[in-house]
Design a binder for these strands. Sequence first.
DNA 1: TAACATTGTTAGACACCCCTAACTATACTA
DNA 2: TAGTATAGTTAGGGGTGTCTAACAATGTTA
Lengths: 156, 156
Amino acid sequence: MVDTLGSSKLGQSAEDYLEAVLVLGQSGHVVRVTDLAERLAVSKPSVVAALASLGGKGLVKHERYGGVELTVRGTMLAEEVYRRHQLLQKFLRDVLGVPDAVAAKDACRIEHVLSPETVERLVEFVREHGNGEPVSLSHMREHLDRPEGKPKRSGR
Amino acid sequence: MVDTLGSSKLGQSAEDYLEAVLVLGQSGHVVRVTDLAERLAVSKPSVVAALASLGGKGLVKHERYGGVELTVRGTMLAEEVYRRHQLLQKFLRDVLGVPDAVAAKDACRIEHVLSPETVERLVEFVREHGNGEPVSLSHMREHLDRPEGKPKRSGR
DNA sequence: TAACATTGTTAGACACCCCTAACTATACTA
DNA sequence: TAGTATAGTTAGGGGTGTCTAACAATGTTA
């Protein structure tokens, strides 16, 4: 097995790193360890370690004290993750009507575990319902009455 | 903070164990390590370790070579997870039209990371759309034509 | 009750992912 | 160019969660 696109299972966080490199790279600037650390809210040593691992898998290039770049394979993988993320976020935001910040956060955490079937369904669903009203407005109004649904976790 | 219901963050798998104890216990039988190991597709030592951890958190009682029981707090937590799981699975299955087996698997993996806001939205969405046709039938039919969308990962 | 089968536990490893402290390299600036 | 500031790295840990191998307790049955 030569290990093409999706075969090497990347573990939760590896995909996050890949996606982050992709997104940061889109700004045109060189992607640095510090940028990644900040974006992922992680220490720089963690970034270095992750990059070493991804480098070993042929997904990123990272020269010492230099910039970070995605390889071709890394780019493909990253874009796949990124698309999934966008899809999910759009779904949560536009279809379910989840607040944007929450949608972003949840998308981050769900994007790695969706099976292809569910992704497909989601694609269609967004295509069809993505521009309508999120849920029903009558229900929305109910929520305006009570400040918080059930603030279990303190974390925002 | 005295650590009421949702405050102690339980880590991905802890919730799975809790939920499994709840479900297995509903059959009326004593819940054994072996049952849990089988249900969660995990080794028995893993179960024992997990139970020790959960025991330390006051969520389960497990006497050596004996049965496993949920404490009151454990039960509350487990039921919360279970409800979330059911909701998610119903959503995936009935609203999105994801095949049942996939819905179950994805629900398992997503249920731990949903924020309360998203859960609420999902509840409403299922309440409103849960009995209609999943996605649109026209699209469904497209899929019947091509056997697989894109079999990236070998897994289901 | 002795022997075997089943069930549960302990011990020891490994993978993943994260952290802090301390050090090194590079960049900036006076 | 010396000195400082910034960026990056290495070393050393910790927590979680999983596994296999080996051992211990319990249960079953002849």
